[in-house]
Amino acid sequence: MSRPLIAFSVGSIVAVLIQTSLAGHLGMLPAPPDIMTLLVVYLGLHHHTAGGAIGAFLLGYLLDTFSGSPPGLYCFALLLVFGSVGLLARRMWIENPITRLAIAAAGLSVKTLVVATWFAVAASARVPWPVLLRTLAAEALLGLLVAPFVFPLLDRYLRPATRRGARAAQRA
């Protein structure tokens, strides 16, 4: 098993634990920060490959498993995030932290939009829109707040060594 794969697996489990256990038990946050989507954004930025797509799918499925959504909802949403971030990453200089933050915001928005659309189109029960929108907005905002801390961590463990080397050389 390669180091990035191990790091990705550990990161996924930690992310799901933070979203399901820690944030809920602390009880101070209106919603857990959307770290899973940040992971997918990161995959879309730096690993826009078949492996990255599978990773995004698995992250979505993990989220589906640990949430009350129908299986497939978060898979679809996170794969759309992955795809759209991948398209953006080809056209932008993604080494700038501000750009990465902007792309993270776009990714979080895509996910929020997909989930809200599904609720609007397919949810059979009456949807409490104010609560839903507040929760989605809180998830996205908190995700954006933790993004500056998450991305450097992922850089450290998931970034291919060649690119890190290139970046170091660029700095030098």
Binding site: A50, G52, A53, A56
Partner: peptide, 8 residues
């Protein structure tokens, strides 16, 4: 990458 994404 894109193909896998589309399939998934």
């Amino acid at each position: 990458g894109p193909l896998t994404t589309i399939v998934l």
